[in-house]
Amino acid sequence: MIKTKDVQFSYDNQVFFKFCDIDLKSNENLLIVGSSGIGKTTLLHLLAGLLNLNSGSIELFGKELSKLSSYQLDEFRKNNIGIVFQRPHFVNSLTVKENLQLAQYIANKKDNNRIETILKNLNIFDKLNKKTNQLSQGEKQRVSIAMAIVNSPKLILADEPTSSLDDNNCANVIKLLKKQALEFEAQLIVITHDSRLKKHFEKSIEL
């Protein structure tokens, strides 16, 4: 259950955003399309609790985000949300496996089997002990997906996951994301300016 209503946000009272409402049933995925500068990333950060909204409401799985303290937001995020960034980020001093272990540690979990399952699923199990800066762009993208799903989130938020990919890879990544979401019973919200993705989603909104 993901519901937003009259969400408004402004940076320093200068740039002003007003977002349309979202209403997703559990097991529904969503594509949010919009051109640059329209506040896509802002919306994603609002949904992830990284930004506090000015007015309106965001309700995720029965929790009203604006009513949570910063500490409760951190807790909520680590238990419910996985984020795939436009450009993959990792802790550079750690290997792929250690990055995933760190993600688990932060969520007070420890499950090496799950790490292995996910990496096998994403076809990058052989990179387990590689430092993240030794990976190719495509591999990084996959590890980044692994990071997002390693703690079994209920919601995966993806920010422009395909912007720098060609048609082929674009389709692959989006299929991968959908497959992982389905397999681990998570809902997927993808935010993009890439209209190629529309055909992959039943439900989409334009900002």
Binding site: A48, L50, S70, Y71, D74, E75, R77, K78, N79, I83, F85, H89, F90, V91, N92, L102, A103, I106, A107, M147, N151
Partner: peptide, 18 residues
């Protein structure tokens, strides 16, 4: 240099304090 990595750790759910 590590600001993205810090941001990543925060988005994974680590608190400011941690």
């Amino acid at each position: 240099e590590r600001k993205y990595e810090m941001a990543l750790i925060r988005t994974l759910g680590a608190s400011r304090f941690q």
